[in-house]
Design a protein around this nucleic acid. Structure first.
Length: 742
DNA sequence: CTAGGGTTAG
């Protein structure tokens, strides 16, 4: 009797010890050893099973975890929760939801786990629904999960409402809220909250350091770091990564050397820091001498080689890895993707046994980058589950490929969208010339409660510029001001172009003046804006100002200033600038620059010189260049040269009606009706349609469009009367416009 | 053995 009891106690102790062993092995990633211990055990209890399930799922072996879960003789509530946690760790939201439904009973852990599943997946509405459904929520745990969920998805306001509402707050609640602020760049609010905290732990302090690091403010980060009573590894690593991130890798190394204790994360962070600063040799040195490596160490190193284009070295490292790891393999895939080598990328991808969303997404991004949308779509269909990044990548891919219908179809099939989704779609519309669609979706975005940011405003303003719709442009300007994005440089530059193209040079000037820290794009936009509106002198003055400030103009700057010269008839200035571009700035002129010069000389009647310039061009002339010559020939009635220019143009743009019409009119002016007839036949042969001209004007925020010969326009008579009137005025000022009504 | 806050890699 006595010995039997003894053996039960001993056995119990043994089981307990072995359960602990399994967990420990799992934590150090030694899953094989953990499984071996489990298999060799003769008397397992429920905790044994729960432990091994936890170990498997935390090491990515989720299907094995599920098999064990099915196989275990007796399940308790912790078993169910452990399985649920397993799905959480492996981003298997759908499976988690199913398990959650099947559970015989639920406790606080179960609910909180499921809520976290949804928030991690960005499905905040579902998470919130569960949160509201919970039968019992006095403890702060579930509140904290919900707050963190909002915080991680950038919805700090909603997080704060819950934080203020909750009945009992613990330290984790405060820290969750604090992390919401620090992770979303709200350092002012973070500081306010931090100073109100009655109790702070290392997490609170580390969050403040991290927040400063994220906003690039290393001075404040260091201040907080120094204020920490007993900094731990996390604090040290945070400050070290901060230095590495802003390029101060020497200081990062000094922090690394001074760290009182180092774990594998410290080493990894230092390696990653060196890699970010392209000091691969230093990284490799550390990698070789570090006492213990995990998958992050390998991945960081592989990624380092990839970032400097040394793919062979990266591959060698990947092959040397003692075990396979998705992240490392994905880093390698990204390397091949950068080199547009989809075959090698595919080879790596095909041999990954447990593919996660990120590696699928990387492959899809690769195909997208190569313009292979069919391949991307095929993977998209095959993958077992998709996340927001997947959907957004597909939208951006189709947009880039000019397939906006497909992009829209993806968009419409999405259950959850984020700002990136909307921005991809809107900028896709803009890039493909569907300006009205871009603006329409800006409106729907607002209706769905999604706030626009700089990446929304920029394409929308560009759409307004292309439509020359001043009213809408102004509205968006106000909207951007109200939301604090009008001072964003990209937005401001887009505003300059928008106002310029709408003919409001003074508004463009105002925006330009208000920018602090203008960049090259700002200068270029303003110069082009002057040029477009015929302000030649101002364009050149701005160009001179730019030069006097020691700024280096680029190709785009010269397109602007040269076209300004041509529009304003400043021939000598233009010629001087063209020379200066080549000699002083060593910029090889593009076809666009030649087009400006041909236009400039041509308008001034120096048609022969214009032609000489084209003949001597070291690069191939484009349609713009020949078009400028044809225009000049038309203006100065140079029929023979005009014919030549037109012939060249027909090669570039065989279906562009205006070229044919221009040449035809030249023949008509010279009374060569046979040639006119010949051209007409050629157009018929080539199926060139004479498309009706279209124009539009905006009156009181409504766009009115006009098509030539359009009798449906209700005010045709008035319009023609006004047109005649304007023509008369223009004639009186000495200009003789050529008017050919339809 | 299961949840909620902070560090490294894709």
């Amino acid at each position: 009797m006595k010995s039997k009891l003894r053996s039960i106690i001993d056995n119990g102790g043994l089981v307990f010890n072995q359960n602990v062993k399994i967990t420990q092995l799992g934590k150090s990633g030694r899953i094989q050893d953990a499984l071996k211990v489990f298999e060799q055990m003769t008397n397992r209890n429920t905790v044994t099973w729960n432990s091994i399930i936890s170990v498997c799922s935390k090491n990515g072996r989720i299907s094995e975890a599920r098999r064990l879960f099915e196989a275990m003789p007796r399940k308790n509530l912790v078993s169910w929760n452990t399985m649920l946690a397993g799905y959480l760790h492996n981003d298997r939201v759908v499976d988690a939801a199913q398990l959650f439904d099947e559970m015989p009973q639920r406790d606080l852990f179960s609910w909180t786990l499921m809520i976290t599943c949804y928030t991690r997946n960005g499905e905040l509405e579902k998470a919130r629904y569960l949160f509201d459904q919970m039968p019992e929520r006095r403890s702060p745990g579930c509140w904290n999960a919900m707050i963190a969920g909002y915080a991680k998805n950038g919805r700090v306001g909603e997080a704060r409402i819950l934080f203020d509402e909750m009945p009992v707050r613990d330290l984790v609640s405060w820290n969750s809220m604090l992390s919401g602020y620090t992770m979303n760049g709200e350092m002012g609010l973070a500081l306010e909250l931090f100073s109100r905290m009655e109790e702070r732990d290392l997490v609170s302090w580390n969050l403040m350091v991290q927040g400063c690091v994220e906003s690039g403010d290393m001075d404040s980060a260091l201040d907080y770091f120094r204020g920490i009573p007993n900094p731990n590894v996390v604090s040290w690593v945070t400050i070290m990564s901060g230095y590495a991130r802003v390029g101060r890798v020497v200081e990062a190394r000094r922090v690394f050397d001074r760290m009182p204790e180092r774990n594998v994360v410290s080493w990894n962070a230092m390696i990653a820091g060196y890699c970010q600063n392209f000091k691969i040799d230093e990284a490799l040195k550390l990698f070789k001498e570090m006492p213990e490596r995990n998958s992050a160490s390998w991945t960081a190193m592989i990624n380092g080689y990839v970032s400097v284009g040394k793919l062979d070295e990266a591959k060698e490292l990947l092959d040397q890895m003692p075990y396979e790891n998705v992240a490392a393999q994905t880093a390698m895939i990204s390397g091949y993707v950068q080199n547009m080598n989809m075959n090698e990328a595919r080879r790596i991808f095909d041999r990954i046994d447990t593919r996660d969303v990120v590696c699928w997404n990387s492959m899809i991004a690769g195909y997208v980058q190569c313009g292979k949308m069919d391949e991307a779509m095929s993977l998209f269909k095959q993958m077992p589950r998709r996340n927001l990044v997947t959907w957004n990548t597909m939208i951006a891919g189709y947009a880039q490929a000019g397939q906006m219908n497909e992009a829209l179809e993806i968009f419409e099939n999405m259950e959850e969208r984020n700002r990136v989704t909307w921005n991809s779609l809107i900028s896709g519309f803009n890039q493909n010339g569907l300006y009205l669609d871009a603006l329409r979706h800006l409106a729907s975005m607002g209706r769905e409660g999604m706030k626009p940011d700089q990446s929304t405003f920029t394409p929308c303003l560009s759409a307004c510029a292309n439509l020359a719709t001043l009213q809408m442009g102004k509205q968006i300007h106000h909207f951007a001001m109200k939301t604090g994005y009008s001072s964003d440089l990209f937005v401001a530059n887009a505003l300059i172009t928008m106002y310029s193209k709408c003919g409001r040079v003074s508004s463009a000037e105002q925006v330009f003046k208000d920018i602090d820290g203008v960049d090259l794009i700002s200068w270029n936009s303003m110069i082009a804006g002057y040029a477009l509106n015929g302000y030649g002198k101002e364009a050149i003055e701005l160009f001179n100002e730019m030069e006097s400030k020691g700024l280096r103009p680029d190709q785009v700057t010269f397109v602007g200033v040269l076209s300004a010269c041509s529009h304003a008839g400043l021939v000598d200035q233009g010629l001087r600038l063209f020379d200066s571009m080549i000699i002083d700035y060593s910029i090889d002129p593009l076809a666009e620059h030649y087009a400006c010069m041909v236009d400039l000389l041509g308008r001034a009647g120096r048609v022969e010189e214009a032609y000489q310039l084209i003949s001597k061009m070291p690069i191939k002339a484009n349609a713009g260049t020949w078009g400028a010559l044809l225009g000049a020939c038309k203006m100065h009635r140079r029929l023979e040269l005009g014919k030549l220019a037109a012939q060249k143009l027909f090669e570039f743009e065989p279906h562009k009606t205006s070229n044919y019409v221009l040449l035809s009119n030249m023949h008509a002016e010279a009374g060569r009706w046979q040639e006119v007839e010949k051209l007409r036949r050629l157009m018929k042969e080539r199926k060139v349609d004479k498309q009706p001209g279209c124009s539009w004007v905006e009156v009181k925020n409504r766009v009115h469009s006009f098509i030539s010969d359009d009798s449906t326009q209700p005010m045709t008579v008035e319009i023609f009367d006004t047109l005649q009137c304007i023509t008369m005025h223009i004639r009186n000022t000495g200009y003789n416009p050529e008017i050919r009504l339809h």
